[in-house]
């Protein structure tokens, strides 16, 4: 640390202070970087498993030897995703629900954030926030118990209420029709509060003079929202949009598996790529096929993320992710 002071040499273009800074900042990034290299980059060699008929090399089994001695099979491991007649249905469910929810959560969250910001009594607004944020912290397994408490075919609150009212109770876990709504409600319930707080944070950061100026121009409440608040929310909306589009082909496994209690009758609505792969491979544990499915999702996600980022960069250069 007490290195002797050196006179900077103009020809080298870097002063000793700069070197010191470079070393210090690099050392700061190092713990994270080492972690990334060890736990993320190092296992990436495993991607080749997607293109191999993975077998165990009996003479000296280890991951590397197994991979090296397995045969290349090209894209064979990927085909199971597309040869089933359910391919379209599961891709539709995955992408469709994702798109729907991206829009719905955004609209709903922006709406709630604006309401919260407009409330004059901040203490109550804070209480609302606290309550709305709560579901975000729960895992889907826990949420599936919440849902089950309402919909259980023999003890559920709603089922029992239907019985008591003399109605034929709905067998919720065997009737696919209400499930687009149940899944949507569950997802909105869990994620809206979090998003709305992100938006609220942005709103509270808007320079108050802009509202004053617009008011002097004769803008009413609604016009202020329309011409001041919404434009300021745009960057946040764009960033969340790009990030979400990058995950468009990845479904939230817990939501589609645990919440419907893994019920077969609901597959027309609840079968998504992730659950299909899980159910297809749970009995065989075929590593090649599962790696292939993961790689497929990663590549599609990457394309979507880069694509949507490129589009945003074109129409709205300031708000692209990078």
């Amino acid at each position: 640390m007490t290195a002797p002071q050196q006179v900077s040499r103009p020809s080298a273009g870097i002063s000793s202070a700069q070197i010191k800074k470079l070393i210090a900042l690099t050392s700061m990034a190092l713990p994270g970087a080492i972690w990334l290299i060890l736990l993320r980059y190092l296992p990436m060699f495993g991607i080749v498993i997607a293109f191999k008929d993975y077998r165990i090399y009996t003479k000296a089994p280890s991951l590397i030897n197994n991979i090296l001695h397995s045969k290349w099979v090209g894209f064979k491991n990927f085909t199971f995703l597309f040869t089933t007649t359910d391919s379209l249905r599961m891709i539709r469910n995955t992408v469709g629900f994702n798109l729907l929810w991206i829009v719905l959560i955004m609209a709903f969250a922006v709406f709630l954030a604006i309401l919260l910001a407009e409330l004059p009594r901040k203490r109550i607004a804070k209480t609302y926030q606290t309550m709305m944020f709560f579901p975000y912290f729960l895992s889907w397994v826990v949420v599936s118990y919440f849902v089950f408490a309402f919909l259980s075919p023999d003890k559920g609150l709603i089922t029992v209420a239907q019985k008591n009212a003399g109605l034929m109770p709905t067998n919720w876990y065997n009737d696919p029709r209400p499930w687009p709504f149940i899944l949507t409600i569950a997802n909105l319930w869990k994620n809206t509060g979090y998003s709305s707080i992100l938006y609220l944070a942005t709103i509270t950061g808007i320079d108050a003079t802009q509202y004053e100026a617009s008011r002097i121009d004769g803008a009413n409440r609604w016009q202020q929202v329309r011409y001041v608040t919404l434009p300021h929310l745009r960057p946040m909306i764009m960033i969340l949009l790009i990030m979400n589009l990058g995950k468009i082909i990845n479904a939230d496994f817990g939501l589609f598996y645990s919440v419907p209690m893994n019920s077969g009758r609901l597959f027309s609505v609840t079968q998504v790529i992730d659950t299909y792969v899980y159910r297809a491979l749970i009995n065989t544990g075929n590593v090649g096929m599962s790696t292939a499915a993961g790689l497929f999702q990663n590549v599609v996600g990457f394309v979507f993320l880069m694509g949507s980022n490129a589009i945003v960069r074109k129409v709205d250069p300031e708000n692209s992710l990078f």
Binding site: F80, D86, N174, S263, F267
Partner: peptide, 28 residues
């Protein structure tokens, strides 16, 4: 040995799960 028919079995496992639970209990 499921290896020669693994793509088919992947699809059929899902179909079986989709229909069998309901049919074997009579809810459908």
């Amino acid at each position: 040995n499921q290896e020669p028919i693994q793509n088919e079995m992947a699809a059929l496992a899902n179909i079986s799960k989709e229909y069998l639970d309901g049919l074997c209990v009579g809810v459908v």
